[in-house]
Amino acid sequence: MRPFSFSQTQDVETAVREVAAYPDSKFIAGGTNLLDLMKIDVMRPAHLIDITKIALNTIEETESGGLKLGALATNADTAYHPLVEERYPLLSHAILAGATAQLRNMATDGGNLLQRTRCYYFYDTQTPCNKREPGTGCSAIKGYNRDLAILGTSEHCIATHPSDMAVALAALEATVHVSGTNGARAIPMADFHRLPGDTPHLDTNLQPDEIITAIELPSKGFAQHYTYLKLRDRASYAFALVSVAAGLELEGDTVKEARIALGGVAHKPWRKPEAEALLHGQSATRENFQKVAEAYLEGAKGYGDNTFKIELAKRAIVRALEQATNMEASA
């Protein structure tokens, strides 16, 4: 690890001021991702600002009937919060499908959104990687890419975003609240993470001087019909090859609204509202689910090792929608 300086702040204003003042500075929350990356020399901040003492760890109801998750609420506290469990069980399940109990106790909701890709080459400083070192090339495209993306890729990077939580947040259409030198703003989940394009070193649209303060969930939680289906190479403690967050609003057999987000397939949680819309007003049948799955994966591109994900994602969508539909039956 390279030497760095360290400070601790108690409030958002100071945090923002310091991050703007120190060159190459980074916030540190749970540290479960940042410290790992510093130890292997992938991230090299010159200054760390510890934000864990800022009072941003509460989970509160909003006036519009939603829920606001403080950026520093831990993944564990969020997943087991009674209001989350009751109204947003999809989010609970997604969080609990990730990492381990110990990690979730340390990991914060804000940090979770900003965790970096798990691409093998990104983790190995002795290999070329455009995300880690822009301009060096992407080793994964012609290399080993089993875990990597099939949607929204570019010739510069095919990394995936590894978060499970973010997939559920995308399906729930959450909003990310941030504060920076230019004040506060709210970013819809759909716009929070970026596609790699020709700037693969940028994961999100958060500015370097901005801090995440909260994640807001709208009132609709799909608590009656939901599923988080995570497919991976072992039963726990592994990132998703493909995951699906699905929420349905049903009237009898008819789908009023469907939400689907895919994880493990792109540089961001993958949404395709026009494909979801194919289900609106339609009956909840396997055939209809298959149509949505086909539409969702349109334009997907495999790179060899990961080509199987196209078919796997389709099947996962169908299964997730079936599970969400039949919840009472199977419960």
Binding site: Y120, Y121, T127, K142, S236, Y237, A238, F239
Partner: peptide
């Protein structure tokens, strides 16, 4: 997993080299 372009084993940690877990 050997990356033959680089001549290097690439999944060289326990995140990416899988052994069974309790589950």
């Amino acid at each position: 997993m050997m990356d033959n372009n680089l001549g290097r084993f690439m999944n060289h940690d326990l995140d990416k080299y899988h052994v069974p877990v309790n589950a």
